[in-house]
Design a protein around this nucleic acid. Structure first.
Length: 419
RNA sequence: GUGGCCGUAGCUCAGUCGGUUAGAGCGCUUGGUUGUGGCCCAAGAGGUCGGGGGUUCGAACCCCCUCGGCCACCCCA
């Protein structure tokens, strides 16, 4: 046990597992590039005010989950607790609003929230996401949903459920919130402590409440869909038609309300079959208000965030397949420099080459080569040095041959790529 | 932030009515062949029993605190 331990809720990802991370990220990049999205990388830290204004003052994220601090110059900074607000900030700050629209951006970033850790829930986790800005047509929503859906499907995650809802435009949302308040007010004294407070502050959240006090009222509660404007309703219907056309299955979930204030119209979450409290793999929606919160400009947008740890949790395990092509063994001090040059040469022509570093017995070297799972071993001893050759050993078959040192690179390349 | 379960070697875990130097398997190092891996055999390294305090003649084991993991709540990815 070492003296220093990783901070609570963080993780070390070791090479064997990193293999899966690499795969997930690559598949995601491929899906984004195919749809014309470009990657954006934003700072880990942002002004605290950005999140306070964008995410919403009465959200849990802003209330109690942000890693905020004052730097030496007195600026209030926060470790990014979500991915969308920084992207919007960068979009405006770099003049991307003046580019031809829409703008298609994706990201793979670390996200920080001060939360009680559990399986699938970390204080520092990694999120991938995409944002489609400057397009309010439901076609944009369809594309965003299809990207995350196809991505998760390609990874082989079974039994995904797409939960879909619409909370309408700001004025619809407002009317709906009013209806919720009217509906719940008579029961105020029966509600849980949290919901008593929320009723006026953020009534949408009442639908999320799972306490026994509040649950009985949920079934009869007003549904957001009944308060949609004609435009919002037809937007929602077009979205559903598009998903049908793409054969992406979904369920309408009237109680789906996301915890960030900036959502309008479309909201969605993707759940795996596995039950448990950390079930959501990905979530997102439309946020036509967010740009207004940040700059006062009116730029519609739709996007999602997806937790990589939760993807991995639900994905079939990947067996690590990276094996070195060749292990280079020098048997004596006299052949050491030949080995050093050969390692360098093999790498320069593209062979994954592990060096034995120092002179040792064949037995010792081959044990090491075996433990590294190398495909071939190249052995250089005094015998080989005298004749300008090396000994090439196939570690899978045990076959061994003598090869001129000038030919060994080409030989290994053809053998290891020809399999 | 609330409640519950758990914490012995790098990994998976034995070991409690409290009793001398804390164990196994796997893994690791070295040797079994002074030019040959995997299998096998042998030897070895590695633990302040998560940390701190207390009770006791004596604590891995009992009590308190603390840290960490997991589960439920909450929240979300």
């Amino acid at each position: 046990m070492t003296e220093y331990r990783r901070p609570r809720g963080t993780q070390d990802i070791l090479p064997n597992d990193e293999n899966s991370w690499y795969h997930v990220e690559n598949v995601f990049r491929k899906h984004c590039h195919k749809a014309g999205f470009g990657r954006i990388r934003t700072p880990t830290i942002e002004s605290t005010n950005l999140f306070a204004n964008a995410v919403g003052a009465d959200t849990d994220i802003v209330d109690k989950e942000m890693y905020s601090f004052t730097d030496r110059g007195g600026d209030g900074l926060t470790l990014r607790p979500e991915g969308t607000a920084p992207v919007l900030r960068a979009f405006h700050e770099n003049g991307m609003a003046s580019l031809p629209q829409p703008t298609r951006l994706y990201y793979i970033e670390r996200v920080f929230r001060y939360d009680r850790p559990q399986a699938g829930r970390y204080r520092e986790h990694q999120q991938l996401g995409a944002e489609l800005l400057g397009e309010e047509d439901s076609g944009a929503d369809i594309e965003i949903i299809s990207i995350i859906w196809n991505f998760l499907t390609e990874l082989g995650i079974p039994d995904l459920t797409l939960n879909l809802n619409s909370i309408g435009d700001p004025k619809d949302k407002h009317r709906y919130q009013q209806a919720l308040m009217d509906y719940y007010s008579p029961y105020l004294n029966n509600l849980c402590v949290n919901c008593k407070r929320r009723l006026n502050a953020n009534p949408l959240r009442l639908l999320d409440c799972k306490t026994t006090e509040c649950s009985p009222y949920k079934d009869e509660a007003p549904k957001p869909i009944d308060y949609l404007s004609q435009q919002a309703l037809s937007h929602f219907e077009q979205l559903q038609a598009g998903l049908h056309a793409l054969s992406i299955p979904f369920v309408i979930n009237h109680t789906l309300v996301r915890g960030l204030d900036y959502y309008t119209r479309t909201v969605f979450e993707i759940w795996p079959a596995r039950t448990g409290s950390q079930s959501t793999i990905a979530g997102g929606g439309r946020y036509d208000l967010l740009s207004d919160f940040i700059t006062g400009d009116n730029v519609p947008g739709v996007g999602f965030g997806c937790g990589i740890e939760r993807v991995l949790l639900n994905m079939p395990k990947l067996t690590p397949q990276r094996r070195p092509d060749v292990y280079v063994a020098s048997l004596s001090e006299a052949t050491q420099l030949i080995a050093v040059r050969l390692v360098s040469e093999l790498r320069s022509i593209g062979a994954n080459t592990v060096s034995g570093y120092k002179a040792a017995s064949p037995r010792s070297h081959l044990r090491k080569a075996n433990s590294q799972n190398a495909r071939f071993a190249v052995i250089i001893g005094d015998k080989e040095a005298e004749s300008g050759t090396v000994t090439l050993r196939d570690l899978d078959s045990g076959e061994q041959s003598t090869v001129a040192i000038s030919k060994i690179g080409g030989k290994i390349l053809s053998l290891s790529t020809g399999k």
